[in-house]
């Protein structure tokens, strides 16, 4: 199956919700047990605004709408992000992320660059979040 994309086209959009449970679950699944992701006291001690989501959890969840759009995870051939703003996960309210994926550039060779905008309260938490997808 070949996908026809247009530069600037919004291809997927999703609201993602993280709770403290999400963080504990990701810690176990990934093996990243850094305590700033589940202990308020430690987060405070090292000067953080609160318990943070793992950057790799944000990165891992943000690409899911792209995978669902193209239907096959093996179409992802390159994926990069820069972690620019921590995602604070409140013990009660959690954190709400918004992901928007836009077709950015035809790279030739049957691949496209898809850009992700990942925001919390309208502010970007990732920069240069780019997925290269095989569309052929």
């Amino acid at each position: 199956m070949t996908f026809e994309l247009t530069e600037g086209e919004l291809i997927a959009e999703r609201d993602v919700h993280f709770t403290r449970d999400s963080l504990v679950r990701y810690a176990g699944a990934s093996g990243d047990f850094n305590s700033i992701h589940y202990r308020d006291d430690i987060a405070e001690q090292v000067g953080l605004p609160g318990v943070l989501a793992h950057g790799m959890l944000t990165m891992g969840a943000a690409v899911q709408p792209v995978i669902d759009h193209f239907g096959d995870p093996s179409r992802i051939v390159d994926y990069r992000v820069r972690f620019t703003r921590p995602v604070v996960v409140d013990a009660e309210a959690g954190a709400d992320l918004h992901v928007a994926a836009t077709a950015a550039k035809d790279l030739g060779d049957g691949t496209w660059r898809i850009d992700l905008q990942v925001t919390v309260d309208g502010r970007a938490v990732l920069a240069k979040a780019q997925v290269v997808v095989s569309v052929a």
Partner: peptide
């Protein structure tokens, strides 16, 4: 386990 944690559905 990992796919569930990153909220994958495929």
């Amino acid at each position: 386990e990992f796919a569930g944690a990153v909220q994958a559905s495929n």
